[in-house]
Design a binder for these strands. Structure first.
Lengths: 192, 192
DNA sequence: GATCCGATCCTAGCACCGCTAGACAATCGA
DNA sequence: TCGATTGTCTAGCGGTGCTAGGATCGGATC
């Protein structure tokens, strides 16, 4: 069944092409510009082809979000493991998180601002999302402090990072003070 | 010129009606349901009338956001002034903020999630937005700690609240632990 | 009181959106 | 070689935000 295998391979390639194109277009011109027509034209297929891969636009956004979650988890883990000592680890984690959000605004939007039809904080939460939270938890648990549930602490720390990321990106916070805000956050939240 | 005054009054009334209807519809069915057609039908005028009051849908969202900012500033100030002592003030402020976001999700979306075409952190930032930040600053400055710029501290605290509000609302954080998260945040961030 | 004129509002329609039915062509198995 | 299946496209549906242009209404003037 080599023929069938080839077809499946080609199909998988095209699906990757769709996601990569959607992501690229979103980073270049924003998600509003990612219309099914524009996307179809860029991958050089007609619109209905998109619907043979995804249920709709929401699911495309969701798929990009999952990609992003996996990348962010990797980035956070890499930064944390390259740092020595709890304090350096947490600082590196925070910087990596905010850096990812700043460098991939469209992906970050797909993960948290847009409706990608993803479930959260439930049984059927997709693996990359749970793993993203786990990546934060790994480094944050050690600085949660005595008597504080590590999961709860991670939620609060994560929320703070998320707030900084979104408000900065939306122009609500001046970008030049990001580093000072990060240091203040780590100083206060983490018990070293 | 009593005639002209009457007309201006009626016009102002209709503008209030548009905003109240948009807000009500958004809280009931979400901003996606606030289409120009639906909105026009509810106020019993045709669509073009909307455009004689606002440049477009964005500006309507922006106007609702400004309303919301004023209300939130008032809510935060009321909560803070009813509390005795720095710690109680900050806790009350945090609760009031999160409570407002939870009770008025559509308005909160208009303020921070949607594009209302509003300027931020600049000279031409609308007054209600600057005042909203000022309301936070008033109570937070006293717990910023020595050597920490009150504005910077307020930004971080605000970002944390914003993160908690949005992640909770999006189903990313289980709502039942909100109170514990709030206490943890206040305990760690505020210097008492 | 008749007439004019300007402000006000609505009908109709534009270009675009996400999505889909059904015709068509290419490819596979017999 | 032929029929069936799979894959793709054209065309179109109902919806969106927004606007041009005509009708209508009310106040000011003679």
């Amino acid at each position: 069944m080599s023929v069938q295998e080839r077809k499946e391979r080609e199909r998988a390639n095209r699906e990757r092409l769709i996601l990569a194109t959607a992501r690229e277009l979103a980073e270049q011109q924003g998600w509003d510009a990612v219309t099914t027509r524009q996307l179809a034209e860029r991958i050089e297929y007609s619109q209905p082809v998109l619907y043979s891969h995804f249920r709709g636009k929401r699911e495309i956004i969701g798929a990009v979000a999952l990609e992003g979650a996996a990348e962010m988890a990797a980035a956070v883990r890499a930064a944390a493991s390259a740092a020595a000592g709890p304090r350096a680890r947490v600082t590196a984690l925070a910087r990596a998180y905010l850096d990812f959000a700043a460098r991939n605004p469209a992906v970050y939007d797909a993960m948290f601002q847009l409706d990608g039809g993803l479930a959260f904080a439930k049984e059927d939460t997709p693996e990359p999302l749970k793993d993203g939270f786990a990546a934060l938890l790994e480094s944050l648990a050690e600085v949660a402090g005595d008597g504080v549930h590590p999961g709860l602490f991670t939620e609060v720390f994560w929320a703070a990072l998320h707030g900084l990321a979104t408000l900065t990106r939306a122009g609500r916070l001046p970008p030049e003070d990001t580093e000072r805000r990060t240091e203040l956050l780590v100083d206060r939240l983490a018990i070293l």
